[in-house]
């Protein structure tokens, strides 16, 4: 596609990264959706030639840096989610909005569960069911973005 689009990819990821860096605390931290992964999933579906698993990995490393976790934890979680996004990308663009929403939710859960397993190996303890709240908020955010006219390739019902 257009080389100028690459600029948008990086700009949007940068914006999501700034969102991550905002001073979240207490309840907000529990609810904070994974902005960065949402943006990556969007670009993986929209422009897989500009944003691929490698991009997800590098951005994951940056998130590792920001969260102070071990290098590679978020990177691996993002890589796994990106793999499932890319693997079914051709089908994903043909899905309607509801199906797509469900699939994005699945991708968010996959990344969170991968992260949970890695953290458990590193000695953390599970946070209970509230741990999955960011995925729900994230998918609501996705729906909101689609509602406000973000084109994700999904066709609305009946179109």
């Amino acid at each position: 596609m257009h080389p100028s689009k690459l600029k948008f990819v990086y700009l949007s990821i940068f914006a999501a990264y700034i969102c991550l860096l905002l001073p979240w605390s207490n309840t907000a931290l529990l609810l904070r959706p994974d902005f960065v992964l949402l943006v990556i999933i969007y670009w993986l579906i929209r422009a897989p030639n500009l944003c691929n698993i490698g991009t997800a990995w590098v951005v994951g490393l940056l998130v590792d840096l920001a969260t102070g976790s071990l290098f590679g934890q978020y990177a691996l979680a993002y890589t796994v989610a990106a793999f499932f996004a890319v693997y079914y990308q051709r089908r994903l663009v043909l899905f309607n909005h509801t199906q797509q929403l469900f699939y994005v939710f699945l991708l968010l859960i996959i990344s969170q569960v991968t992260l949970l397993i890695l953290k458990m190996f590193a000695g953390a303890q599970s946070l209970g069911w509230t741990y999955l709240l960011p995925s729900i908020i994230g998918v609501l955010l996705w729906r909101l973005a689609v509602f406000f006219g973000l084109k994700t390739g999904g066709r609305s019902r009946g179109a």
Partner: peptide, 19 residues
Amino acid sequence: PLARLVFFSALSLVLIATD
């Protein structure tokens, strides 16, 4: 995608172990 997944996963695991 599978090749990329394997490559980057291996890289991340090495990084986690090193860190």
